[in-house]
Amino acid sequence: MLAGSTAILLLVCGLIAFAFLKRRPASPAKRVWIVGAGLVFPITVLTALLAYGLVIGERLLPRQSSDLVRVSAESSQWRWVFGYDGGGRRTYDALHIPAGRPVDVVLTTADVIHAFWVPRLGGKMDAVPGRQNVLRIEADRPGIYAGVCAEYCGIGHARHGFRVVAHDAAGWQAFSAGDRP
């Protein structure tokens, strides 16, 4: 996408610069400019892009999977409460997940709109009053990932961050069994 964009940008700049040259080939016909460059060219590029986006988007959607883990995230001004096993177990401002397994995060809010975003683990989703949104994330390897609140939520917005701790299989066992990691 980046390379394509750069190419288009350069193309447009080049065409403009060329127009200022004293000696240049005669201008192509109106049809070439408007139908060729104005219609056919963007339609081709955009169709390809759209298809690509749809396919990737479908792949990112929450889907049934046998080793799926489900956690809940309740956001509030300015704290994150994560729940496991149907809410039996809670952690604050740090979300624990197993690495290498898909995780569904069920997002709710206690007050205003917030958004859950861990840049290195995938997309973001809003937590909207009166609703539950589900976001699928997956960490490829164990580690600690920084997360932020990505919807402006008032005075504490910049500091409304959290951590995601991705455990290896043994660590996840231990965490699930109730040990403090």
Binding site: V12, L15, I16, F18, A19, F20, R24, S27, P28, K30, W33, I34, A37, G38, L39
Partner: peptide
């Protein structure tokens, strides 16, 4: 369409 109409005009 507009952008290329403009560039075509320049040309």
């Amino acid at each position: 369409v507009q952008i290329f109409a403009w560039i075509g005009t320049l040309w």
